[in-house]
């Protein structure tokens, strides 16, 4: 199990595992065996609310960095999230269709969204935030929200 940063503000606690990188939008990217698995951070899923529907770009499609990757509809918002890297969508988590609430229940595990075969990972990873940077970023963001 990787180390996990946790901070609590008001009645909410947010977790940031240290084994992956993060986009400012709140997607995480976990590299394993040449594949990049992505999903929503705990901070993003809690801010977004209960997920009702997830629409992921189809498996096999090539996406550019910053291009639409997944749309989520929650009880509060509808939100487009963009790919943190360029590559081909190797697989989409089938749970996104049958139990999208997995994103809320287990955002870093069973609630993963899709896997990409990266085309620009070495470059893309430099544009993503380290866990430390993302942790600081969401702490600041949450504090500003409370003000």
């Amino acid at each position: 199990m990787p180390e996990v940063f946790v901070f609590t503000i008001d009645k909410f606690s947010f977790r940031v595992p240290t084994d992956r990188l993060y986009s400012a939008e709140g997607l995480w990217a976990l590299a394993k065996d040449g594949i990049i698995r992505t999903g929503l951070s705990d901070y993003l899923q809690q801010r977004s609310g209960d997920v009702a529907f997830v629409d992921v770009q189809p498996g096999g499609k090539r996406v550019r960095r910053g291009e639409l990757l997944v749309s989520i509809e929650t009880i509060k918002i509808t939100s487009d999230l963009h790919s943190p890297l360029a590559g081909r969508i190797a697989s989409v988590n089938p749970a996104m269709q049958r139990s999208p609430e997995d994103i809320n229940r287990d955002p870093y595990g069973e609630g993963w969204v899709c896997e990409l075969e990266p085309e620009d990972w070495e470059e893309a990873r430099l544009s993503l935030m380290t866990p430390q940077a993302y942790f600081a970023y969401i702490q600041q963001d949450a504090a500003q929200e409370l003000e």
């Binding site: 009702a52 529907f53 609430e101």
Partner: peptide, 9 residues
């Protein structure tokens, strides 16, 4: 109620 909504988007 979410389950009902999921079945009737």
């Amino acid at each position: 109620a979410m389950d009902v909504y999921r079945a009737k988007r």
